[in-house]
Nucleic acid binder design. Sequence first.
DNA 1: CGTAAAGGTATGGTTCTTAGACCATGAACG
DNA 2: CGTTCATGGTCTAAGAACCATACCTTTACG
Lengths: 232, 232
Amino acid sequence: MLWGLKPVEQQAAYGLAVTHLKRQVHMGMVLPGERLPAERKLAEQIGISRVTLREALRVLESEGYISVKRGASGGAFVAPEDRLREMALKRLSGDPRGVLRIFEYRAAVEPLAAQLSTVRRTPGDLRRLDEALSEIGKATNAGELRRGEAAFHLAIAQASANPYISSSIEDALASLFMPLPHGLLADQVGRSSLLRGNVVEAIRDRAQQKAEQRMQLVIEYEHARVSDSKAA
Amino acid sequence: MLWGLKPVEQQAAYGLAVTHLKRQVHMGMVLPGERLPAERKLAEQIGISRVTLREALRVLESEGYISVKRGASGGAFVAPEDRLREMALKRLSGDPRGVLRIFEYRAAVEPLAAQLSTVRRTPGDLRRLDEALSEIGKATNAGELRRGEAAFHLAIAQASANPYISSSIEDALASLFMPLPHGLLADQVGRSSLLRGNVVEAIRDRAQQKAEQRMQLVIEYEHARVSDSKAA
DNA sequence: CGTAAAGGTATGGTTCTTAGACCATGAACG
DNA sequence: CGTTCATGGTCTAAGAACCATACCTTTACG
């Protein structure tokens, strides 16, 4: 038999921290320009020592994700939206097929998640979905819109009550920072609200087929949006 | 924002090795009763030191996956089929929903993989599929049948050329040792060969819809088979 | 009955991670 | 203007994990 040729590679703690923090940025859990918690606090929160965290911060800094300032009211600040968008586009152009891979995958899994959610949703799930919709509706810049959308997709993943689906959706979302196209923010917010609101409505009404179909639409729309960004 | 409440946990190297080796057993890459490579060799193959590997072996031994004998022609031997089946059933009964979760997930992803394979398959992919079919056809015991089937599903995952699909199928396959029901082996082999052979045929003919539908059948059949095992 | 192939054990060194203390900076405030 | 103090920057000592290597013990087999 082909005996485990691939070596078991142990990730260093600082490497895991780098990955973790990048995901937060990619999914918009922390917005461009925002300050991260102080080193001592952040280290405790993610369960590593401060020295180790600092190694991770150095990596993120060198890759342009954050910039660190010292002194009072200093700290680690996420790069501005434009810088992030630039980095994202660079990655997209480096691997043109990557986007297709992500979306063909999401197109299979997320509609399933929506469909399952119609049956398994808890009151807490519905609350999270409403909150996400509300954040999308109130978004006043690209970062906030992205964060709301990420929250929406993660909430549906959670509502599906299937750990395989959950973790794979999270991976797919986090694996790529999806830039929003420049353009009228109001338009983006409007379409995002409408399409995703319809999904939530179907989930609330326990309408399996509708939920599935409408989620499919969301994915298709988002795929198109990313492709447009790439073209521009 | 909710700042990364979940701590970043670093897996120890021996823990990774345990997981890796369990997967090999679960997927039937190493058959019941078979001997693992010698410690020195295995350690080198999976890229860890012998001392660390030995820690992993102690864990596997204590959980009943392997038993270790010393002296010439000693070594680490995978537990016999019956013992493994017993362990698998124990786990299934401990988490009755787990099986459903796995199959509802596979039912979405694997047909997609088959469909994509019709377009992206390489000659190497077709060869691997044929080999897997051949191993299924020649199976003279439950272990060999399982190994052939695992090889088949992994080959299709690979042929889909989508890393998200690939890794998630591997996870799903490895997350659970699927016991085969006691019963006429010839029957099992016959049905498995027929159903999976049809899928390969569709992939060879580049028949997208057929590939997708036939893979769906395979998953449904396997789900039923596992459920039967549980009942018995 | 000795050889060889395996597992079992021991030693010392390297790297990663941690806890804790202390230094340096600079914005805010009196 | 100078003090305060939150915050990043640095240092040290200890511990844990992992590794390379050498050597001991068991046991099948010629």
